[in-house]
Design a protein around this nucleic acid. Sequence first.
DNA 1: GTTAATGATGATCATATGAACAAGTAATGT
DNA 2: ACATTACTTGTTCATATGATCATCATTAAC
Lengths: 349, 349
Amino acid sequence: MPAQVKMIVGAMCVILLGLLHTEKSRMSEPLNDPEIALMTEIASQYYVEGETQEAIAKRLNISRIKVGRLIKKAHAVGIVDVRVRHHPSVSSDLEASLVKRFGIARALIAPDFSDAQSQRHAVAGLVADYLTRRLTDSKIVAVGMGRNVGAVAENVFTQHTCDVSFVSAIGGSLRAGEYMNPDHICRRLAAKFGGESETLYAPALVQDQAVREALQENPTVKQTLDRARRADLALVGVGDMSEDSNMVRMGWFSPQEIAEARLAGTVGDVMGYDFIDIHGRETQAAMRGRVIGLDVHDLRRIPDVVAIASENTKASGILGALRTGVVDTLATSTTNAMTVLSLANATEG
Amino acid sequence: MPAQVKMIVGAMCVILLGLLHTEKSRMSEPLNDPEIALMTEIASQYYVEGETQEAIAKRLNISRIKVGRLIKKAHAVGIVDVRVRHHPSVSSDLEASLVKRFGIARALIAPDFSDAQSQRHAVAGLVADYLTRRLTDSKIVAVGMGRNVGAVAENVFTQHTCDVSFVSAIGGSLRAGEYMNPDHICRRLAAKFGGESETLYAPALVQDQAVREALQENPTVKQTLDRARRADLALVGVGDMSEDSNMVRMGWFSPQEIAEARLAGTVGDVMGYDFIDIHGRETQAAMRGRVIGLDVHDLRRIPDVVAIASENTKASGILGALRTGVVDTLATSTTNAMTVLSLANATEG
DNA sequence: GTTAATGATGATCATATGAACAAGTAATGT
DNA sequence: ACATTACTTGTTCATATGATCATCATTAAC
């Protein structure tokens, strides 16, 4: 191993330690059984029976304020789940159009929201439900990065635990933080579904191709990547080329570079880095050969690639992603779905 | 057909019309798409984002009170679900004891509640979850009557619809009302799970054995009963012999008769009518041969009979039911489970 | 033992929310 | 056309609830 690469790998270790360090912040608390029972009883009376906190407090001989606090805690530990789902009988024809037009396996379409955050949760909720009924023991799920993928874990509501492996499909980035880094998403998913998670111990982006090759030969990295390649299902985000895109927030691109890429015909990215134009063709990009993670070629061999895109800036990116042929399941909003369909007609050929 | 039986069957028709009549009260409202979208958006912002109703109202330019009403309506139509579930790591050893002691397939144990209503919901919630992960397309579920079975439908939270047939396993009773009659329970279950429901067009209890035989030969009745006999899973309640038991409320027994039956060693009933003593043996009862529905013999051939009993007056009834050998899955409370285990030791032999 | 620190508890108050009522509006029957 | 009914919308007010702060207990550190 050349000395230069050695040094760089040394630097990587510091980054990895940084990543590992953030883990401990979300430890599971001890929580004794009687308190759980109390919270369950209170929550049940409050939410299911519709009792007032005061009445519950009186019955159980505790202060009203304590009842309120226990209800709050019940939320925090997951005893109480409030879920907003979408009335059936919505947007099923739109889903059928997308399936037919792009030859994908299925589409999950959430209703429109005026608020971006709500929109993300709505789309993520659909994906979470899809996972709930799709996952069974010993399946492997490859997990990408980004806000949209991260939101999926927050919207999982199932009691049925099964033994699924969630494997990071791309390395980490300090800028992404707990919410968007694939290893943290994996951990949250595993906590909800009951399986195990596997971190890809590598940075998402490295300096040059030499470092990438060195890392890919590393047994730890190689093993996780190979595991991810054998996944039954992959969760990937679709990125856009706006000035506040994920790429810019990650520090991987300056706003100027994004603008240049956009002018050169790039409309979006898949999994956080595979750049594509509106016809689904890969475009040249400064990150080429420097990313540690699954590429389009790997994704194509995964039986069910779920592409998630909630923001309405992403219509052209979604179209490009669909045309690459890697997407099996598309999860997005009603507006995006309609825009993509009309865009597709406009840019035919 | 003898003239006497004919007359009685004529009377039945009036009863059936009465049963049918109650159906229309719970019609599904029309609900236009934009309102659904609005409710979904509002509910999402309120519950998922934690926004205040006032803030949402301001953003969407509608009155605060309207936001409140739409949230309420979102609850009513099922866009918002609040579920209280039980923290994992509770009562699993108790379940194992029951399985081992009585040779049943599994037990579902809910934590204790001081309030009977909450207790029922907790137990029903476990059964609902069990159904959610057990039911698949083209399965048949035989459905009994009673509050405990009825509460199951209220606690189903799933988006995944599948094609299940819910078949009434016993006739109806006017006194039972919408909540407890098997056909209504079937309909509610089918609405939640997405399958179809089938009513047993007969009263639960008839005057004498002759009428019963006449009805059982009726093709409509026979077909439904045969369908129920082929069920993959059955939901049955376990009744107790207290003075305000289901039997009394149904008007099938006077409190005196119940007291006599109790003195004679009857500890409970299965499915609303098969009377048993604490050793699981059938006891003589005034209803013998007059009930239209599956009997213990039929239940024994159903692969998964789920017995549901939440009230803590039912411990001895549960023990009797377990000892009949028809139960495959027992759903009850922690206290009941413990009582049943100690009772079993006390009445061994 | 003393002291700081952390966490739990309860009182007070501002705010969020739902219920009851009133006014307006559309649909329906006469 | 008019009255009637059913239904929706907004106002007012009582109540339910969460935030803030002070107090108290418990633990940890010295």
